[in-house]
Every structure is written in structure tokens, then in C-alpha cells.
Amino acid sequence: MTISQYEDYFYIYILLLISVPAIILGIKQIKIKYYAFFATIFMVILTIGMENQMLTIGVFLLWEMALIKLYKKVNDKNKKWRFRLFVLLSLLPLVFNKISGFTAFGIIGFVGISYMSFKTVQIIIDIYDGNIDEIKLTDTLYFVLFFPTLSSGPIDRYRKFIDEINAEIPRDVYINDYLLIGIKKMVVGLAYKFFFASLIYIAWLKEIPNDGSIFSLVQYMYCYTLYLFFDFAGYSNMAIGTGYLFGVKVPENFDKPFVSKDMKEFWTRWHISLSRWFGDYIFSRFVLNTLKNKKYRKKKKNVYRVGQMITMTTMGIWHGLTWYYIAYGVYQGIALALTDDYLASKFHKKHAKNKHYQFLQIFVTFHIICFGMLIFSGYLNNYI
């Protein structure tokens, strides 16, 4: 038997039971990480199961841990080809997972392979950058498997996570900065997912007729956007809250995204941990490496545009190898590139501080967001 994370009340019940010992340890000022590691193994087994997926995740972990330990030994800042090779090798299981759905074998992988792959690639990049001095196998496994964020994030950073799980947390700090905040996050997450998202799905999304009309299309665009936000933000808040209970300040993932005035601001408010990961490890690295070449320095705007297109298209492909995920990535890349031009325009600079203009920005940006979510949903298949 397997259960999906944060998808039903039975999982929440198990989650609450397994969190009680962590809370007791935190209040008693006893390090939580040792109990939390075994709790993570238990919850991973419960989520993934003991059959094919468990074997697959075992092979994945052996492969990734071997790569990380080996790269820590052979890392050489002057040999970029070696760094790139190890990044590609680390991504191989994820690539195989994405293309396996188009083979006769069917999808080969396990719940959470995408987010685990991001974590392992991140470690290799940080080793190359000289940000990691030591790799402890159990701590690294704990980071990769950390059960609250197993299937859909948020994505934490290795050094921050390792520092937190090994820190001594005083009782009053745990109660005020971890326990109370964690409970609040859990309550908000439960309300978002099991009330608002469920209500939108039952009362609206499920009732939209699949009749190919423009009215149904527009309804679905708005409805799916709101449903996705409350469902995903609900999941994220529960994951963050659980992390806090276990002594880890999991990064925020949503910050009122629908009040964004432009698409650049939107990506600082929506799926924050993912957009920062892509920004730090793909966009920034591409731009900095490209601008090292003198002939491109006078074309910074074009470099940024190409970087945005590469980053967002990669994000689309990461979601899946279907036309609408890839189109969603391209759409977001174009939206970001056009946003740069818009923010640099004399018209925007002239009106930027006007409140009525700001409300108009929010209105327009919301509709750009909604159309992107419509592409992402795959609903347009019904109209092609």
C-alpha cells in the first residue's frame, strides 16, 4: 500500500502521529535529526512502497551518492569538462525518467525523482564552486530524501539544511520559531488544500462543460489558475510546516503571486524555491559565463533574453515532454523578455508610481498568468 503526500486525511493523520516525537525532542532540546532520519525512511517507504519504485529509488541513491563522493575527490576548478560531465551523469536518471514514458517500458522512476535530482545536481555544482567542504553520507541522504518536501518541494539548499539539522535549538527558540510557526503553516495549508482547492474543484472546475466553447475555455482558464494556486500553495504550506516541526526552516514557496505588477515580480512570488533554483543554477550561470566573452558584453540585453528563454524552456521541459509544457516554458521566457523591455520603457517609468496604473499592471499581469496556466493545464488540447 502507498499513499500520496498531503492528498488525504489518512496521510495527515500519519503525519501528525510521526511528528509528535519530533516535537517532544524539540521541546526537550534534544537533537531531532536522528529520529527525523528514520521518520524520513518510514515516510518515504509509505509514500513510494516496497515494490518496483523502492528498487528504483535505491539504484538512484547509490548512483547519485557515488557520483557526489567521487566528484568531491576529483573536483578541479580548472577542468570544466569534468564538472559538466558529472552534472550530466547526475541528471541521467531524470532524463531517463522523462523519456521512458515514450518507450515500450512505460514510465520508469519514482515519486519525487525531479526534486531529488535537483538536490543532487545542486550538491555537485556547490562542490565545484567550493561551497562544500565535507560530504557526510547520512546527512546528504537525509537532505535528498527529507520527507516533507519529497514529491513537490519546496527545494532547500544543502549548506543551509546541513547547518540547521546539526544546530542546537534552545527550547524557547524551538517553541516560538519552529513549533508555533509550523502549526500555523500546517493549518493554513490544510485550509488551502482541503477547503478552498476542494471547493473550487467540486463547485466549479468539475462542472465546466467540455463543449469546446469559448465561454468554457475562459471559465477553465480562471478556475484552473485559482485551483492550482490553492492546491499547490496548500501542499507547500503543509510541507513547510512539517519541516519546521522537524527543526528545518523549509523555504517559502508562495507570496501572494496574484498581486504581482509584472511577470518578473510574479516569478519572485510563485513557486519561489524552484524559480530561484533555476535562476541561480541556470540563468545566472549562463549569463555570467556568456558575458566573460568580450564580444557579448555590448549585447547584455540579448544575453539576458537568451538566458530567460533557455531557463524557462528548460523549466517547461522539466515538467514533461508534452507540447503544452514546452509551450508553457517558451511562453514564460517570451513574457520575461518582453517584461524587461516594458520595465525599461519611458511610459512605464513615467507612470510607475501612479496607484491607478499599478492596479492596471496587476490586472494585466493576472491575465498573462492565467493564460500561461491555461497552456500548462493541457486543456487547449480540446481545441486543437
Rank of each mutant, 00 (worst) to 15 (best):
Y6D: 00
Y9Q: 00
V20M: 11
V20N: 02
I32P: 01
Y34M: 03
A39L: 13
I41P: 12
F42V: 15
M43L: 15
I45P: 08
T47L: 11
N52L: 10
N52S: 07
Q53R: 08
Q53F: 04
L67M: 09
K69D: 01
F86Q: 02
V87R: 07
S90K: 07
P93I: 04
G101D: 14
G101R: 14
G101H: 14
A104P: 00
F105M: 15
I108K: 13
T120A: 02
Y128E: 12
N131Y: 09
I132V: 15
K136S: 13
T140K: 03
L141C: 10
Y142F: 15
F146A: 02
T149V: 13
K160P: 00
E164G: 04
N166K: 09
I169N: 01
D172S: 14
M186C: 06
A191G: 13
Y192H: 14
F195V: 15
F196W: 10
S198K: 14
K206E: 03
P209M: 00
N210P: 01
G212S: 07
F215L: 15
Y220H: 14
M221D: 09
L226Y: 07
F232Q: 07
F232R: 04
A233Q: 03
I240A: 00
Y244K: 13
V248P: 09
F258G: 01
V259L: 02
K264D: 07
F266P: 10
R269T: 09
I272Q: 05
F286S: 10
L288T: 14
K298P: 00
R305N: 13
V306M: 08
T313M: 05
I326Q: 07
Y328T: 11
T339G: 07
D341Y: 10
L343V: 14
H356A: 12
H356M: 09
I362A: 01
I375E: 04
I375N: 06
N381M: 11
N381H: 09
N382P: 00
N382F: 06
